[in-house]
Design a protein around this nucleic acid. Structure first.
Lengths: 229, 229
DNA sequence: GCAATAGTGTCTATCAGACACTATGCG
DNA sequence: CGCATAGTGTCTGATAGACACTATTGC
């Protein structure tokens, strides 16, 4: 098709979750060379007869290695270069995905494990850098979107959600401001009549509005323009 | 290296400029099949012995087809799939770049031309979609960064810059707010003693602070966190 | 009632839009 | 001086942080 060597392509997925208030990333043990036996990001190759797009590959990798369908997945960034893989010039289209920890606790530590993103250390290829990019993306989106809801189960209280944000942003948030902000984003809805009991005043349970699971709601607000003169 | 077919990889570049208050995108005439002779995004293949990374490929494509080095370039998004190219499963790593129009006016309309992004119409592959993604990215970053300075020459007045923003955002901006905002971003500096004369009060000339050409200054400001309790 | 957490009322500082004002060049 | 554009002073409305307050459950 072309008369010069072409880079080879792989898909890597950074699956993040919150385990015991710690942001963790799924690592799997590599089966093939190079780096066979080492811990690395789950990934794979495009199956050209099976995958319609690279996102489909990422989803398939997730389903195969994590066994949980329907997760939030978005393209992260594409990492390229001559030196990142000892086999030669390579392209890794990196995706990042979020899962509530209860959906995928992982006991099988022989071949896969959750590792705190602060403790991934050195990984094969440029996987450590890819993890950092995913974490930065998530933290940045926590500032202005409801993306972090995908780290907890479908039904949750606002206080539970606030703890997720506090974890990601490494600080405490004012409950009043937090509620205002989340409500203004307009992506969540109270589930009528559903509350959580815990020996004190029950908390209203919320969920993402149906159909907004993927949309992610932004609140950019800056530089207000008047309609063109 | 792998025992199944691998997608082929190309690099496409959306080079944007402002020509007469119109946001335009560079199109080049395709030399090779498929779609030989059609107008499409400038692009090319990775030269594995020459390009260190895909960004280097993008820069090389720009230098070859536009002849202007040192432009602002960032990775946009990677477009993938079985159907986007008739030759088969393909990956396009798309970059977007900005150039001041005076640096690259383009007269040679036989093989390349500036086309208003509102009039690109149908393009080969998914190039129209790639252009739209680049435009959306630029407009979105105009809301909170100084990225649009790369659409005008190195030295400019704040009013000239404001017109760029008004063009991108399709509206008018209040001069007071605009100046405050730009100053707060902290990426620009007044050039001492340099003014622009035009038969009325001279305007102070600004430029990007040296060393901040690539950094782009954001003003996220949202969800203020207190230091962790 | 008390403990504990859920959720609200409301003050205040900050900030951006609006817009009138001053500043400074040229003829 | 008048014109044109550059640039500022300052009012006001909106908004987010702070924090005290009320609400509702179990015991």
């Amino acid at each position: 098709m072309t008369d010069f060597p072409t880079p080879f392509v792989s898909i890597d997925v950074v699956l993040l979750t919150l385990r015991d208030n710690e942001l963790c990333c799924l690592l799997t043990r590599r089966e093939a060379e190079p780096f066979a036996g080492a811990w690395a990001l789950p990934g794979g190759y495009v199956h050209v007869d099976e995958d319609e797009t690279a996102e489909a590959t990422a989803t398939r990798v997730l389903t195969t290695k994590a066994g949980v369908p329907g997760l939030y997945v978005e393209q992260l960034q594409t990492f390229t270069g001559r030196r990142r893989d000892p086999r030669g010039w390579s392209v890794s289209i990196a995706y990042f995905a979020l899962v509530p920890h209860d959906l995928f606790p992982v006991t099988d530590t022989e071949n896969r494990q959750w590792v705190s993103v602060d403790q991934v250390g050195t990984l094969p290829f440029d996987h450590a850098q890819i993890v950092q990019a995913a974490v930065a993306r998530l933290r940045s989106k926590a500032l202005y979107s409801t993306l972090p809801v995908h780290l907890i189960p479908e039904y949750f209280t606002l206080h539970e959600l606030q703890r997720v944000y506090e974890n990601l942003l490494q600080g405490t948030l004012d409950p009043r401001s937090f509620r205002r902000r989340i409500e203004d984003l307009g992506a969540l809805e109270a589930v009528p009549g559903m509350t959580r009991q815990a020996g004190h005043r029950p908390a209203q349970v919320y969920r993402i509005k149906p159909g907004m699971r993927g949309t992610l709601s932004l609140a950019p607000k800056n530089l207000e323009v008047s309609p063109r003169a």
